[in-house]
Write a protein that binds this DNA or RNA. Structure first.
Lengths: 255, 255
DNA sequence: TATATAATATTTGTCCAACAAATATTGCAA
DNA sequence: TTGCAATATTTGTTGGACAAATATTATATA
């Protein structure tokens, strides 16, 4: 028996939770496909032995996730859910703790390093032209902090090149986290960027684009690693000083 | 005006949707933190000008996402949401279309290639020992299809080494997709694995572990790329034959 | 007075009944 | 057969009621 099991549950599992569970297993169990009809509310409520209100609270959850759609008199049908709809909702209000924020920042870096091969493989002349325009529009105004617009467009375009809608959607949802962290801890990032600039180790979007054009997988990946160096340093520092509150202190020691 | 705007909405935005939206902006707007109390249902319903039922259907959604917790008589408080709770729910029942499944498969490959650096940086003797045990337990029984248990444990452990809970949770949710696809299209994977085996190009978990122990970042990454080669080939084939129904045909042409 | 116990009030969880709005179906008329 | 009107059905929304849990208050006892 694990210690967790001893924890007093803040609330017994509610009827709605159980119904939600049953609905999901009903759908999964019947091997239903998108477009298939679902019994109407009265039938479901009776079959489940709960009131229509409880059922509807559960159905409301499925509706939010996009698992079902419903129209008056036409009933409910299964639909293809938006995989990251839930993520989008909970990220928007920044109630996430710093641990989660840092995890997401690292997630983004990892993801972007992971797609480098795919980018080189998939890139076309059209894509390169679009990247060119984005880079030209985004003249750096402060170290490697590009104008937010161009910054976003450039990285967004990289994901677009993978032609993987899920990855792209995910990136667009968690991208604001990078901005948030970068802004909140600018005291950490600015000296690092300054140092990189002095050492000539700053990898700009222009540099990255040139590497893409050269079709140099290893070079491009290493370029990306260097481009994300400030984030990597930040994440490393945050891991050493476990407690986020100590972060500023940790930073003071490291710079 | 975009064409999309012309599309007949399958249903006007419902009251519950609007209330959900307002609740999220309420939370975001007030800069609320975890643990903060939320007005009780009657107050909220009145303030929003909707019935308690509608409000509760919206609250039910926030509860599912873990944004709020509620207990009888103690009211509702903000809580730290589970970022991937929604994803977990919609992935479990395999109602996702093949496009989404393939995207998720690629997502996994990308992610695992992206964490290779982090793994080399973070790995400790303890982790290596755990990996050793996992590899020993999992003697290959059929080409590079490891016993499912060991397969899962090995890759799961790699994510664990990153010490990023979000990435690990994400991986665990989408991992079943790999198994599902691999099983569904085994006619595609088996000849490829056979070919890799004959060419001595099969990278096993043992090989990967040796690369990790050597601390060889480039080697480890290339090893992972090779380890995922069957998936990469599969994804490439699926992209060429756009229509998933043609996939078997495409495969026939390519092998 | 301090403490334990009982009564009370409040808040979420659940049920029920009704009506509104949309729309599929049926029946009727031209 | 086609077009239109009446009907029925299904989801959307409201309001009220009670149950269950628990915080708060009042009461009784040492």
């Amino acid at each position: 028996m694990y210690m967790e099991d001893l924890k007093i549950k803040n609330q017994a599992v509610t009827l709605v939770d159980q119904v939600e569970q049953k609905l999901f297993s009903y759908i999964a169990g019947k091997n239903m496909k998108v477009g298939d009809a679902i019994p109407n509310e009265n039938e479901l409520a009776e079959a489940l032995g709960v009131s229509r209100s409880v059922l509807r609270e559960a159905l409301s959850r499925l509706r939010m996730l996009g698992v079902i759609e419903s129209r008056t008199r036409r009933g409910m049908v299964l639909s293809e859910p938006n995989m990251f709809g839930g993520l989008q909702r909970v990220i928007n209000p920044m109630i996430l703790g710093e641990d989660s924020l840092f995890n997401l920042l690292e997630f983004r870096v990892v993801l972007e390093l992971g797609i480098t091969n795919s980018i080189i493989d998939n890139v076309t002349d059209d894509y390169i032209e679009e990247l060119e325009e984005i880079v030209e529009r985004g003249q750096a105004y402060n170290l490697n902090f590009y104008r937010a617009e161009s910054e976003n467009q450039f990285h967004s375009k990289l994901y677009e090149i993978t032609e993987n809608k899920s990855i792209k959607q995910f990136q667009e949802i968690i991208y604001p986290v990078s901005l948030f962290v970068r802004d909140k801890f600018k005291d950490f990032f600015e000296p690092i960027n300054k140092e990189l600039l002095q050492n000539g180790a700053l990898v700009t979007h222009r540099d990255l684009l040139d590497l893409i054009k050269a079709g140099d997988k290893d070079g491009f990946r290493k370029g990306m690693e260097q481009h994300f160096a400030p984030y990597s340093k930040f994440l490393k520092a945050s891991k050493n000083g476990k407690n986020p509150n100590n972060l500023n202190h940790t930073i003071g020691l490291e710079t």
